[in-house]
């Protein structure tokens, strides 16, 4: 009689323990979700700010092709094209576009090496810009494609 009672209470203890475990699991789960959610919210806020600032990126990147071509065309004698190129570039610059500086040494965070030249020059110096690079609001929009010196 006593034994079976003990057995019963053992079983009960076991069930309670199991339930405790489930409760604890669920509580942890909930805390994790809550934390996830708060982090998520904060990040979305941040991304929203970034988005407003860089929303034009895709469009600007596409327009760079046109800018390049206008620049190439403006190398010719046509005065009109030169004016259009300047006008177009001015507009883009007002939107935060800025040419990447290539006067110094190569920097992989801003430039991309397309070719190297082994001549009498300073190691790592940019000798030629094959395609201009641009920043948009201080973030790289397109890397400058360059030829650098390698000895």
């Amino acid at each position: 009689m006593k034994k079976s009672k003990k057995k019963k209470s053992d079983e009960k203890d076991k069930i309670i323990k199991e339930k405790d475990k489930i409760i604890e699991n669920n509580l942890n789960q909930m805390k994790k979700m809550q934390a996830d959610f708060i982090n998520f919210k904060n990040r979305i806020e941040k991304e929203k700010e970034e988005f407003v600032k860089y929303a034009n990126r895709e469009l600007m990147l596409k327009l760079l092709d046109v800018l390049d071509n206008l620049e190439r065309a403006s190398q010719t004698e046509d005065e009109g094209i030169k004016l259009i190129y300047k006008q177009f570039k001015d507009i883009l610059e007002k939107e935060g576009l800025e040419e990447i500086d290539t006067t110094g040494k190569f920097d992989p965070y801003y430039h991309e090496v397309i070719a190297v030249e082994n001549s009498d020059c300073e190691e790592g110096k940019i000798i030629e810009v094959l395609q201009k690079g641009y920043l948009l609001n201080n973030k790289v929009l397109r890397h400058s494609k360059v030829k650098i010196c390698k000895r």
Binding site: F106, P108, Y109, H111, V113, V116, G124, H143, I148
Partner: peptide, 9 residues
């Protein structure tokens, strides 16, 4: 960045 400098290095 590593990819961008691979030709020179």
């Amino acid at each position: 960045p590593a990819k961008r400098q691979s030709i020179s290095n």
